[in-house]
Write a protein that binds this DNA or RNA. Structure first.
Lengths: 228, 228
DNA sequence: CCCGTATAATGAGGCAAATTCATTTTAAAT
DNA sequence: ATTTAAAATGAATTTGCCTCATTATACGGG
């Protein structure tokens, strides 16, 4: 049992699987899932039709591969795009910008994602991992005290990704290009104030009750003075 | 050329088209687009397979019909759910609640929507109409002076629908049910403060912080006077 | 270097489902 | 009752995914 050849062979096989995936991505992106024929993909990968099925169970599996790889690369890219030394707000902005540009750039593949989650089955693992990048930033923000303690991460996650995804669709629909104001506005919405409130935050943003107390105190002082 | 029969005939035809659409919706919802066979739909509508093609060009067209009708009904329902006398914040909350419940309720049809917009083609007209309901509320809010003059409606629209759609997906994914806190939190984000900020709005709507500053200044004056 | 075996690749053929269309049925008008 | 047009039918065609019997290639031992 030779070691080197085995390795080489394994590598070769992975290389071929990757070649087929490249071809699939190309054809899917150009023609959409339904429009793409396995025979097209096979031709683009320079293999016979049957060979595709040695590497991927079926057309759907091929799609899952393409989409999974995309999100997995997105995770890598996002981690690279985030400066670990930056504060929470900046990290979020880095993630948001990176996210927006990537999904606009590769909009066709993102669209294919919808086809890869057949009927309310669980999401792709790779998507969950990607979303974890956001969670980590937020968690760190909490730990560092840069966010109010009761920040609802789960809900803000939906706001973050939901808004960006929808904005991307809108931009594509109208043929407009990316404008960073979307990101900055979103972040100022998300971080600009927290209706929930720790002490530090309270000082910057007094509640109505605080105001009332102060008014009452002043009123009292005035009353005292007048009665003198 | 008889008038009555013509009418009757036209009605009959529309009724049959509608019957087929009902069947299609039913089968699509149960089996998904790919899982649905035209023969199933034909059987459910009690017509022959070929007859379906007299009313709809092809399977895709059938899907477009189903999805279009859904959004169109959603628009009607939304308009009915909104109290024209309520203020902007309440109207938005009504729309948000209605939206969330509807799309959670009919999640299968909503999922089909993704299949109805093949590859970055323009959105369905019915979706655009639906989104118009939001725009109208916001515009009215501006006119009534209930919103800052420079409210970025377009961006808030993306926040609104993007967040709700993403939240709905998340809920379905986790098998959780609808919790109205999603809506109230979203609205307090959207309306709770104006991060964009013209002077004009600030004057009309001083922040608590502004009030606190003014109070502190008064307090200071009182102190000064006393010390004299 | 040749052979045998295991691994990989091939593409013709089976099959399922969408779509077409020649034929039949139904409805309307005279 | 007959003619004509509209509507419906389902068998036949087409298309494209996927299987599998066959062929080619790689590799280790003699």
């Amino acid at each position: 049992m030779p070691a080197t050849p085995r390795n080489t062979s394994r590598e070769r096989i992975e290389a071929k699987a990757s070649t087929i995936l490249d071809a699939a991505e190309h054809i899917f992106s150009g023609a959409g899932f339904d429009g793409a024929k396995i025979s097209d993909i096979a031709r683009a990968a320079s293999v016979a039709e049957g060979t595709v099925y040695l590497y991927y169970k079926n057309k759907q599996d091929l799609l899952t591969g393409v989409v999974g790889r995309f999100w997995s690369q997105l995770t890598q890219g996002a981690e690279a795009a985030i400066d670990p030394k930056a504060d929470t707000a900046h990290q979020l902005e880095q993630l948001a910008s990176y996210h927006m540009q990537s999904i606009l750039d590769q909009f066709e593949v993102v669209s294919l994602s919808y086809r890869a989650r057949p009927q309310q089955e669980q999401d792709l693992d790779q998507v969950r991992e990607y979303v974890g990048v956001f969670d980590r930033i937020m968690q760190q923000g909490l730990d560092r005290g840069e966010l109010p303690e009761d920040t609802p991460i789960d809900q803000l996650r939906d706001v973050f990704f939901g808004t960006l995804e929808f904005s991307a669709r809108t931009l594509k629909l109208r043929g407009r290009s990316y404008d960073r104001s979307i990101v900055t506005n979103l972040l100022s919405l998300m971080l600009g104030h927290s209706q929930s409130n720790p002490e530090a935050f309270k000082q910057k943003n007094p509640s109505n009750r605080d105001l009332m107390q102060m008014l009452e105190s002043i009123q009292e002082q005035l009353d005292n003075r007048r009665s003198n």
